[in-house]
């Protein structure tokens, strides 16, 4: 319920944003969706994927190639971007999920870099490092306010879906597998199938985010597949707090705002990002969301204690 109020507030906010604000907010929703998709794996299954960029980029390239080479209308490419990323995730997931922890992380990274290498070199098809540019969506789709609502709508849809997923039997099964795989399997949960499905859902949502980002930027480059792009969703998640449902989305917003502020003043944005990440990991591993929850619960406890004491 509270989620719906949030979406309503964001929708009402739309007309008040400047052109630049709309772009930034749209980007925040996209990165938020991407990070939430990553966190479905990270939080629910405990799998750290360092290759989410593979699906982000697959979605973006599917959209870009269909629009630029196939002449498709932009909206029609979105379901396909979703589907192709899901297929990509099915393939990569099928190969990597059987591996444990660190090897899973490495294999996802390797596949993403492999796709990056292909996109980078295959000039005839992907345009190589020239990328695919001039992707302005036609008509009303190219207008910032309308696009803001499109992105917000899909973001809301994705978030509600993840919210329902977390409370579904499927979500419980994932957490059971994360906490004690042997026991979960002993009660009859098919570990491989569950994890693969989670991986595919996460990949498909990442692909949708990638397609939306490509249309927002009006261009797609191989760096959509690069590993720093995979790190982005991890950073947003850690910043916002992986243990809080909306944490990754909050982290994504803070991440983008910080980038705007820092980049306006200095070219050393990665340094700030690194220093911030260092501080978060060392001192606030629960992220901003976790920190806020902790403070809220402390205040609540304090009030109760005060009440019982009087």
């Amino acid at each position: 319920m509270r989620l719906l109020w949030l979406f309503l507030a964001l929708a009402l906010l739309g007309p008040w944003f400047s052109e630049y604000g709309l772009k930034l907010a749209s980007e925040a929703f996209i990165l938020g969706l991407y990070a939430m998709a990553f966190n479905l794996l990270f939080r629910q299954t405990g799998l750290l994927s360092f290759g989410q960029a593979a699906f982000f980029g697959l979605g973006a390239y599917t959209m870009a190639l269909l629009v630029a080479r196939g002449g498709w209308p932009f909206p029609a490419t979105l379901p396909l971007a979703f589907l192709i990323s899901a297929l990509g995730a099915l393939f990569i997931g099928f190969l990597s999920i059987r591996l444990s922890r660190i090897y899973f992380t490495m294999l996802t990274l390797a596949f993403a870099q492999l796709l990056y290498a292909v996109a980078h070199k295959w000039y005839a098809f992907t345009g190589g490092d020239n990328g695919i540019t001039d992707l302005r969506p036609p008509g009303i789709w190219g207008e910032s306010l309308f696009y803001y609502y499109v992105v917000l709508f899909l973001f809301a849809l994705g978030v509600l879906f993840l919210w329902a997923l977390e409370r579904s039997p499927f979500g419980y099964a994932l957490r059971a597998l994360r906490d004690n795989r042997a026991r979960a399997e002993a009660v009859g949960i098919n570990a491989f199938g569950h994890l693969l499905l989670a991986f595919v859902i996460s990949g498909a949502l990442s692909g949708l985010a990638g397609a939306l980002q490509g249309a927002l930027q009006r261009s797609v480059f191989p760096d959509y597949l690069f590993w720093t792009r995979s790190a982005e969703c991890i950073l947003a998640t850690i910043l916002g707090g992986s243990g809080v449902f909306l944490g990754p989305a909050i982290g994504a917003t803070v991440f983008l705002l910080l980038r705007v502020v820092v980049q306006a003043n200095t070219e050393y944005w990665p340094f700030f990002l690194g220093a911030l990440l260092l501080l978060m990991v060392l001192f606030f591993p629960k992220g901003l969301g976790g920190l806020a929850l902790e403070m809220a619960s402390r205040r609540l406890k304090g009030e109760r204690r005060g009440a019982s004491g009087s």
Binding site: I234, L273, G274, L277, L278
Partner: peptide, 20 residues
């Protein structure tokens, strides 16, 4: 800590050193 945090810490070092 869980290995995610170790990876993130060293990733932070990577960003910092590159900019230095």
């Amino acid at each position: 800590r869980p290995e995610e945090y170790q990876i993130l810490l060293t990733y932070a070092l990577l960003l910092i050193i590159e900019d230095l």
